[in-house]
Design a protein around this nucleic acid. Structure first.
Lengths: 123, 123
DNA sequence: ACGTTCATACGATAGGCATCGTAGTACGGC
DNA sequence: GCCGTACTACGATGCCTATCGTATGAACGT
């Protein structure tokens, strides 16, 4: 029990963001979260960054409110973690939780996304 | 070009079932196809069978028409192959195509599905 | 205190989709 | 030729969701 992510974060006095606990995460929901091109892109960027990024750091061809929507879906389905730092909202992949539940899955998806992008883009 | 699946099957005189060619298959669509509990179950059964199964061989807690719908989604998104044998429609996973496009992905999903089922069912 | 920046909430809209039931079509056996 | 079996097509329904714009709120710097 040393690698688990706190299901309920210590609400730091700021706005609170509900995350599902590790045990709450369901495969079908994770797949659904990843099955949207925008969200897949978000997850790829987040994975490449290897750390936290603010929402504004990830450029998407949609409006701001739609962006908020996609980030919320990813959070509520257990794919990413979010917390506020000042006015910015930081985002990070929940790698440890996903790896514990579905070993290899996320890496497989990320790899597949990279391969497809290379295949479709550069030819 | 020796391992590719025929994009257009030789319509054997029977009802024809359009399949996407290997190059047509998109990751987001595959994930979407897998992101439904019914379809995930179908795929798991099909993978375990290691061969072709008729639609009726896979019992689902939904009506027949809904069943048809799910099989069609899986076929149109490139996850399964279908063909008629007499009155029965046979189904098979497109393992080779999926493996070529997204190596390891399907196995990862199947493994994750198995793990989750064991985790949620037996405890 | 004020304005700027970042992100949210809310309402609206349009399209997608999982589900059903009923009626119909194709094939095989009698 | 007729019937049963297996699946499809079509239409309906209700929910979910991706998108937007506008108005609002929270934190920071000056």
């Amino acid at each position: 029990m040393s690698t688990d992510t706190p299901a309920a974060e210590p609400v730091s006095g700021a706005r609170s963001l509900p995350h599902p606990g590790r045990e709450e995460i369901r495969l079908a929901q994770v797949l659904h979260a990843l099955a949207d091109p925008m969200r897949l892109r978000i997850v790829c960027v987040l994975a490449a960054a290897e750390g936290e990024l603010s929402c504004a750091d990830i450029e998407l061809p949609v409006s701001k409110s739609t962006c908020t929507h996609h980030f919320r879906v990813l959070r509520e389905h257990g794919v990413i973690q979010q917390f506020y730092r000042g006015t910015a909202k930081m985002n990070g992949l929940r790698r440890a939780d996903l790896e514990a539940l579905f070993p290899g899955l996320i890496d497989g998806v990320l790899r597949a996304a990279g391969l497809q992008e290379r295949r479709l883009g550069e030819r």
